[in-house]
Design a protein around this nucleic acid. Structure first.
Length: 530
RNA sequence: GUCCCCAUAGCUCAACGGAUAGAACGCAGCCCUGCGAAGGCUGAGAUCGAGGUUCGAUUCCUCGUGGGGACACCA
């Protein structure tokens, strides 16, 4: 399954058992297809010259590799071992793409059941760009993990009760002038709009600000669902209500569990969880001295629910403002016995407008909602743009520029490559790629480079599934597009002599398959025309 | 004050401790009477500063400098 893993398996036979080493795709200018630095590692342990060791291993590899697997294995530079895969192997991979179609690039790497929680923004207003970043990341990561073999549930945890919602209710009352305004209230246009629309309802519920807030939150959640699922095409399997977590008694259950395990204690009239035992910098209150469970305790109950529903692996994507929350929730995950609990913290998106920074704040109401970006730039563009960048990068985003340059966005470059490929097949009226073609007819550098690049798809999935680096996909998309554009400029399909034409159309058909699989994993459309 | 993230080309971003630091945009040239030029080719252009670890540092460590964020019995 995949050329790289085959090479890894071969190399493994020539080094000490259990040794961890890398086989990487060699960069373009190095000419080789794959390379390993295993000799450097061994040189350190054996205190020998890496070149010597590399030579020894290279010979061993040649002896142990299947016949005709490598075109060449050589030692280069200070001790790299370079691999040149034979055209037969590339040809086999090409046939595999054509045989597997949609399944090409699905792996049996991960057997686990994963709950992926993301966005989970309070339904107290529109989503911010940071929410959107986490949304695209979560959606695409879910796709990657599924391709890698995991069973994934995508969850949005809805804070539909508590203080923030109470504040929302009060904000509505203040907006209608029923109670005096306050610094802490939400002030965006959306507050006023909603308040104006439901004036009579607000008047009726003026004694019950929490219920009012819940009412508004329900509406806002509806807007969020539309923005996320319909417009941004971010999928969720489950919306979990915090209110229901309280109602089903899970909060009491998790509290009892903490007590039983000896991680909770009372002090100053409140109940605390000993999160410092797991590296947090202070212990956290779970029951206030008024006797109310904190948000944190409810979230712990939510984790318990997830665990009880059969998930041992939880991945939670948080925005930058929740960084301080990581240590305590990880403490909970440990106490509850999750096998894996990963928290990915995305960094903020700084929104620039004509060179100056625009502060984003829900409370102050000055913000560019995520949905506006999606509508104006387009779902594909917004998604691709956000996913091109590593989550920990502090991204500067100029909305005006993004709209203006949308035609030059890399997503068009990538989609255009697909359109060109598709167009070749359409023009030649090929619906099914020829099955019996002669792979030796694919012999030019452009032919081989394209197959090479196609064969990387499963490797990219594997890498991204391991380190959750979803931006590998968009980077790969650009590389594949570039390779195809190069091929397209240099080689022809239609009009070539029969055997070449068949082989090339098979190659182009395979390119379309990989593009389609890649696009669906990233979550963008595969246009037939542009 | 404490903690976390970031600093790479004019701009926005890449690069498991490895070979000549990549790409798109912008800039200067060139390429359509052959599958769509939303494309291809060529060129100029960068690792914040000072130490350290290493055969080898953009990457790891320390100290600076400059940005962003977090430090509630809010969520």
């Amino acid at each position: 399954m995949g050329i790289r893993s085959n090479i890894t398996a071969i190399v493994a036979k020539t080094v000490p058992k259990g040794m961890v080493f890398d086989v990487r795709v060699a960069e373009e200018h190095q000419e080789a297809h794959y390379a390993t630095t295993v000799a450097f590692q061994l040189a350190k342990a054996e205190k020998k010259n890496p070149r010597e060791i590399a030579a020894r291993i290279a010979d061993d590899i040649k002896a142990k590799a299947p016949k005709d697997f490598f075109g060449k294995v050589e030692v280069a530079g200070p001790g790299f071992i370079n691999f040149f895969v034979s055209n037969e192997i590339f040809g086999k991979e090409l046939k595999q793409i054509l045989a597997e179609k949609k399944k090409y690039g699905t792996l049996k790497l991960l057997k686990k059941k994963v709950q992926l929680e993301f966005i989970s923004a309070n339904p107290t207003g529109p989503l911010t760009l940071a929410n959107g970043r986490g949304g695209f990341l979560g959606d695409a990561l879910g796709n990657v993990l599924e391709r890698a073999g995991a069973k994934v549930e995508r969850e949005y945890y809805v804070n539909d009760t508590g203080n923030q919602v109470l504040t929302l209710g009060k904000s509505m009352l203040a907006s209608e002038g029923i109670i005096p305004d306050s610094e802490e209230y939400y002030k965006g246009d959306y507050v006023k709009e909603w308040a104006d629309k439901y004036r009579t309802l607000i008047e009726k519920m003026k004694e019950k600000p929490l219920a009012l807030g819940e009412c508004a939150a329900k509406d806002f959640l509806g807007f969020i669902k539309t923005a996320v699922q319909k417009r941004a095409k971010i999928k969720f399997d489950r919306f979990t209500s915090e209110k229901k977590i309280h109602e089903t008694g899970l909060v009491k259950k998790v509290l009892a569990l903490f007590k039983k395990k000896g991680f909770s204690f009372e002090e100053e009239g409140a109940v605390w969880l000993k999160t410092t035992a797991f590296g947090d910098d202070k212990d956290r209150v779970i029951i206030t001295k008024e006797g109310n469970p904190t948000y944190f305790l409810a979230d712990a109950a939510h984790y318990l629910q997830t665990k009880q529903r059969g998930f041992d692996t939880k991945i939670n994507i948080l925005g930058p403002d929740h960084y301080g929350y990581v240590a305590r929730i990880q403490a909970v995950a440990k106490i509850l016995g999750f096998k894996e609990s990963t928290v990915l913290v995305t960094q903020a998106i700084r929104l620039m407008e004509q060179g100056t920074l625009v502060k984003m704040s829900k409370r102050k109401g000055k913000l560019i909602p995520f949905e506006e970006l999606v509508d104006e730039a387009g779902a594909d563009v917004a998604r691709f743009f956000f996913l091109m960048i590593a989550p920990e990068t502090h991204m500067d985003f100029d909305l005006a520029l993004a709209k203006e340059r949308s035609q030059k966005n890399p997503v068009y470059y990538v989609q255009y490559a697909y359109v060109r490929a598709k167009n070749i097949l359409t023009k030649m009226e090929i619906t099914n790629a020829p099955k019996n073609f002669d792979i030796t007819k694919l012999s030019t550098a452009h032919d081989i480079n394209l197959i090479r690049e196609l064969a990387r798809f499963p490797e990219i999935i594997e890498d991204a599934a391991r380190d959750y680096g979803v931006h590998r996909l968009t980077r790969y998309a650009s590389n594949l597009a570039k390779t195809f554009h190069n091929f397209y400029e240099a080689e022809r399909v239609a009009g070539e002599e029969r055997t070449i034409k068949d082989a090339r159309s098979a190659l182009v058909a395979a390119t379309c398959i990989v593009f389609e699989n890649l696009f669906s994993t990233i979550g963008i459309t595969a246009p037939k025309k542009m």
